[in-house]
């Protein structure tokens, strides 16, 4: 499915520096019309022309889902990454034109839940801000546990405390505060759904603990977007399009496919949704699987690759694309 039909031209209406690491951007439609309402947990893909390299990074929407006058995202600067967040931080200013995708939700609330228990780590707070706005408007029951390095980096913590009171609990690493996860999970009413968004280690810890305590899989939701890792350049042959492309050191395979003018499917661009799954025709070398979509068995067979985050090292790789 090509995404090209479903893009929204926007202008940057506001840029706010929240702390040394995080900036908030507000987008409005270039033609002045309303944006679609969205569901809490949805993200948009922001397209950037980073000095000739086309970047397309997913960011969770954090404005109120009912606010159709603009969308807001918060971006954490990643100084060692490939540059998408750095580009937004250093180059994007009020009045700039950008293109974003329509909202996509891979981290939706289960509205059957009797209670929503949310665990956020760092910049993982953003989808929960939109979800809490929605639940609050619907008189839904929720509770947020938000861990950050220190109060200075805990974006929106004061706002959220002011808005939701005791339903928001804060934890600071620098003060050796840690979510007491096992007692927290043990004390939840039947019908609670658990949501976690944050660094990989936190997601793994929460999922493992919930599983060990017998939580049903359907009640545990998580969202982890990987930034495409950098690496050595490599060559790939695209059999269906009869093209050979070179993937640069800070370019993803998906970006290289797109740069060659080949239309490839995608949704999350972070190894989570499965949309860009591609068949491997032949492989002489080693596929560096970075996604959490393919099973370990699938990764071992080497018959499939997720080009949004995975790379290759070796003599030749031919894909059915």
């Amino acid at each position: 499915m090509s995404m090209s039909h479903n893009k929204i031209p926007v202008t940057v209406a506001e840029v706010v520096t929240l702390n040394p690491l995080i900036k908030r951007f507000r987008f409005v439609r270039r033609d002045g019309a309303s944006l679609p309402a969205f569901s809490g947990g949805a993200h948009v893909v922001v397209e950037m022309d980073d000095h000739g390299t086309r970047r397309m990074n997913p960011y969770s929407l954090m404005s109120a889902p009912s606010d159709t006058t603009g969308y807001e995202i918060s971006v954490r600067r990643d100084d060692v990454g490939r540059g998408g967040s750095l580009y937004l931080h250093q180059h994007v200013k009020v009045g700039d034109d950008l293109v974003i995708s329509a909202p996509v939700n891979l981290f939706g609330l289960d509205l059957q839940a009797k209670k929503h228990l949310m665990l956020a780590g760092g910049i993982g707070i953003t989808p929960f801000i939109a979800q809490m706005a929605l639940l609050s408007a619907m008189a839904g029951r929720f509770e947020l546990h938000y861990a950050a390095r220190n109060p200075g980096l805990a974006a929106y913590a004061d706002d959220l405390r002011a808005r939701y009171g005791d339903r928001v609990q804060l934890y600071y690493d620098d003060q050796d505060q840690k979510i007491a996860l096992a007692p927290l999970l043990a004390g939840q009413p039947l019908g609670t759904h658990l949501y976690v968004c944050g660094p990989k280690g936190m997601i793994d810890w929460v999922r493992r603990t919930a599983t060990d305590m017998g939580w049903p899989q359907q009640c545990v939701h998580y969202e982890e977007f990987l930034a495409p890792p950098t690496g050595k350049p490599f060559q790939v042959e695209l059999a269906a399009s009869q093209k050979t492309i070179t993937v640069g050191p800070d370019q993803s395979l998906l970006e290289a496919i797109e740069a060659a003018g080949v239309d490839a499917p995608y949704l999350c661009r972070g190894g989570a949704c499965g949309q860009c799954e591609t068949d491997v025709v032949s492989c002489d070398g080693h596929i560096q699987h970075h996604d959490h979509w393919l099973s370990d068995e699938e990764k071992a067979t080497g018959h499939k690759i997720m080009p949004c985050v995975s790379r290759f090292e070796g003599r030749s790789l031919v894909l059915d694309r």
């Binding site: 499915m1 479903n6 679609p36 329509a102 996509v104």
Partner: peptide, 10 residues
């Protein structure tokens, strides 16, 4: 599979 990927506005 197709419908789970159905997009807003499409």
């Amino acid at each position: 599979k197709f419908l789970l990927n159905l997009q807003l506005g499409a």
